[in-house]
Design a protein around this nucleic acid. Structure first.
Lengths: 225, 225
DNA sequence: AAAAAACTTCATAATTTATTTAGATTTATA
DNA sequence: TATAAATCTAAATAAATTATGAAGTTTTTT
């Protein structure tokens, strides 16, 4: 899953990024208000970590934008203990959770996990969908109880499509989502084709229906039916 | 849907074009006032992006022309922050929205979507018309809940006729609308006949009434009744 | 450092869509 | 009704997109 971290202190931001990347999230950092705004409008995130004290504006002002452009996305507000605002505590501004600096990375991680679980998986740890079972915490996918080994990229692509059932996902969106900031390096879709092919093969070989539909000229779609 | 971008800075114009073409709009650029005026009077657009600072005149002076020749067309004014005029902000000049440079492409895109939705679809995301349902965002058309797969061209032609119910649409207009600047390459209507035929067949096969009437020697019309 | 796994690139094949062609049908007009 | 022009249709060809297997890199694991 993909996370945006909005935080102006570079060193602090990087250490958070490093930590949560180890937890297998794709992480991007926006170092100021406007960079964050652009990313929110252009890219897809599943959770946004929002420091509200930014040099160029309050992170809180990004919340309406997040709701508009990414209604499914979770929001965790990062705030210093002394600047904390009652509205944040009450989460009246539309965030899912907040955490006060300083905090332990493991705590942040736990909260991200909880928010994502609530937002995307109905609070469950294991998702059931027809013949498919997904163990979120372990990033494992089963077809009729038989585990299939997906690589990181395959898993990310699968989950992106799965979490957007019946919606057209363009190849550009997939690249953006899975490769994050590195997505500019690509000038063709060959590797997408390959990953999709391998992903499909693994699923189908385990007796899974082919839910992934190619939409000519546009992208892919996970068909619920 | 088709968009005209009136903007003299070539590079800027091209990057906008590239971006919104990815969103499946047909895009034409007019690089100066008079080129814009000609296009507005001759062609069909659903939305016009109007930079008001043009070397050959103010884009605002094109607005009456747009109203006269294309009453359904949306207008979004592009303006530099410092040259902004109160009348623009109040939209008293007849625009639907405005955006100040610099802006994010995603923001422009969101505004285009909103203006088109307001102008053409009554603000709705899904259109219902007798047995037809149209999911604008996903570019999907259903007949009595059964999805019919239209190709890009078929979809564009269908929407053009649909959005101009009971009005005669000439074959030239269709070519102009769907193929944009490339429309000069065609010297006969054979391919239109084919696309219309295939479109009709898909619709009728799904149990849809044949709303598309041929008007001999002139073009086609989407009959509401 | 070697081996294994994962990722990307490349060449080629398969598929889907777009356009052209040619013949059949319909319409307008005389 | 005869004729020409316009339109419709299906089939053939061309163009664009996607799928595939294999080769070459890079990254990770041992």
């Amino acid at each position: 899953m993909k996370i945006l971290l909005v935080e102006d202190e570079k060193q602090f931001a990087n250490s958070i990024k490093e930590y949560i990347e180890k937890e297998n999230y794709v992480v991007e950092i926006a170092y100021d208000f406007w960079e964050a705004k652009e990313k929110i409008e252009l890219s897809n995130y599943d959770c946004i970590l929002l420091d509200i004290m930014l040099p160029s504006g309050s992170g809180l002002d990004l919340i309406p934008d997040i709701h508009e452009f990414q209604p499914k996305c979770g929001i965790i507000v990062i705030t210093a203990k002394n600047t904390i605002d009652d509205r944040v505590i009450g989460l009246e501004l539309g965030a899912d959770d907040y955490i006060t600096k300083p905090f332990h990375l493991a705590e942040l991680n736990a909260r991200i996990k909880a928010v994502l679980r609530r937002r995307f998986f109905d609070g469950k740890k294991v998702i059931n969908f027809n013949e498919i079972q997904i163990d979120i915490d372990n990033r494992e996918i089963f077809v009729n109880q038989n585990k299939i080994d997906l690589t990181k990229r395959e898993y990310e692509i699968f989950m992106f499509l799965f979490n957007n059932k019946n919606r057209l996902i363009t190849k550009d969106a997939i690249i953006e989502y899975v490769w994050g900031d590195d997505s500019n390096n690509f000038d063709n879709f060959d590797f997408i084709y390959t990953h999709i092919k391998n992903l499909r093969k693994k699923l189908i070989n385990s007796g899974c229906k082919d839910y992934i539909q190619s939409i000519y000229g546009l992208g892919y779609k996970f068909n619920e039916i």
